[in-house]
Amino acid sequence: MLLVAVVSALLLHAASVAQAQTLRLAYYNQTCPSAEAIVFDEVQKAYKVDNRTAAALLRLHFHDCFVNGCDASVLLESGDNQAEKNADPNKSLRGYDVIDKIKARLELACKQTVSCADILAYAARDSVRVATGWFNYKVPGGRPDGTVSKLSMALANLPPHNQRNVTLLAKSFTVKGLSVDDLVVLSGAHTLGVSRCGTFQYRLANNNDKGMNATFRDDLRRRCNYNAANVAPLDAGSQYGFDTSYYANVLANKTVLESDAALNSPSTVNRVRQLKNDPSTFMRSFELSMGKMGALRGSSQGKVRDNCRRVRM
C-alpha cells in the first residue's frame, strides 16, 4: 500500500509538472503573432473610455484563477447549473464586454487559437501597464479553457472579504500552493478600484472596530449615506493609480475590507511596510506573485473555446 501511494504521488507530481511546462513565453508567436498586441489594444481603448477597467480586468483574472485554476470558467454563462459569475462575490465583476471584444478580434485574426484563459491573463497584465503607463511584465501563455463553471465552486474557493484573521485568510492561498507573502503582494491590486458600500457597511456601525480609523469611518459614513449601492475606493486617495499607497492605508487602518485590514497583523505588517516604502520591490514582487497565481491549473486538457461565454468548442 505504501509503494502504491508513493507511486501515485510521483505520478501526480509528474502530471502537475508536465502541465506547468506547457506555459511558456511568446506562446502564440507562431500561431497568432498579433495576439498580445490585440489584447493590449482593446484594454487600452477600454481604459481610455473608463479608467475603472483596469481594476475590473485584474479582478476577473483573480476570481477566475482561484476557483478552478486559470481556465476562464468565470466567464461562462449559467446553463444547467448556476455559474461562478452568479455567486455573490462575483456579482459585481465587470469587464466581460472587454473580453468579448478581444475574443472577437482574435477569432477573426486566428480562429480558435487563443484561449479565453490566456486573454484574461494578458488583459490583467495590460491593466497594470495602462494604469502605470510603463510597467509591462511578461506573461506566459498556454492555459486551456475550462468547460465547467459552478456557483458552489466559487463560494468554496474565493478568499472571504470579511475575514480579519490573517492566518485563516492565508489558508485560501496556501491550499493552492501560494504563500502568505503572495497574499500580501496580490492584495496590493486593491490599489485600484472601488467597493460597494453594501459590502462593508456592517463595519460602519461598529465604533469599536479597531481595524478602521475613526475619522476614516466617519468619511465612509458620509460617502455611503446608508445606500448599499454607493461606492468607496479600496485605496483611499489613489483609486486609479497603481502604486504603494494601498499599503500606507493598511498601516493607517484606512481600508474598507476586513481582508485588507487583516494585513496590519504581526505576521504580515513588516512586509506591508517594506512594500509601502519600496515601490520597485512591490512591482517585482507583484510580477512574481501574479506569475504563480497565473500558473494555477484547472482540469481541462488543451481546449480553446470559440466564445468565452459558452462551452461549445
Rank of each mutant, 00 (worst) to 15 (best):
R223T: 09
K176E: 02
F62T: 09
K101H: 10
N86E: 15
A56D: 05
S267W: 07
C308I: 10
V6R: 13
K176W: 03
L60F: 07
R24N: 12
Q21A: 13
D218I: 11
V194D: 13
M212Q: 07
V148E: 11
L257S: 11
K48H: 11
Y28W: 13
D278L: 02
P140G: 08
T281A: 14
N208L: 14
N253R: 15
E84T: 10
A83E: 02
K254L: 04
K292G: 07
A14E: 12
W134A: 08
R196Y: 09
R222V: 13
G142S: 01
P266D: 13
F62W: 09
D88H: 14
G79F: 08
L169M: 10
S92M: 14
R297T: 05
P89R: 06
Y240K: 12
K45M: 08
L275N: 01
F200C: 03
A252P: 01
K111P: 04
L192K: 04
N253Y: 15
N157W: 06
I38P: 00
P233I: 03
N165D: 15
K276E: 07
A26H: 15
G237I: 05
K138N: 09
L23A: 08
K254W: 06
G298H: 04
S299A: 09
C308M: 10
A214N: 13
R203D: 05
P279N: 06
L2I: 08
V39Q: 09
L2P: 02
N29W: 09
D182G: 01
S172M: 06
S300I: 06
A236S: 12
W134P: 00
S187G: 07
S299N: 06
S34C: 09
R222I: 12
P140F: 05
L93V: 04
D88L: 15
T22H: 11
F135C: 01
T244D: 01
D182S: 06
K45V: 10
R309C: 03
K303S: 13
R310I: 13
T199D: 15
R94Y: 08
R284M: 05
L288K: 11
C116A: 14
L10Q: 15
I119L: 05
N225V: 03
T268S: 08
D80E: 09
F66P: 00
R52L: 12
V175L: 15
G291I: 02
V128F: 04
S8A: 15
N86W: 14
R273Y: 13
G146I: 02
A20S: 14
D209W: 11
N29L: 11
A72T: 06
D126L: 04
M212D: 03
R196K: 11
S195L: 13
T244V: 04
S127F: 01
A87G: 02
F62I: 09
C308V: 13
A72I: 07
A232E: 06
K254Q: 13
A56C: 04
T22V: 14
E77D: 15
K91N: 10
R217F: 05
F242Q: 03
A35G: 07
T22I: 12
T215A: 12
Y240M: 10
Q19R: 14
A83P: 03
N162V: 12
F135Q: 03
P266G: 14
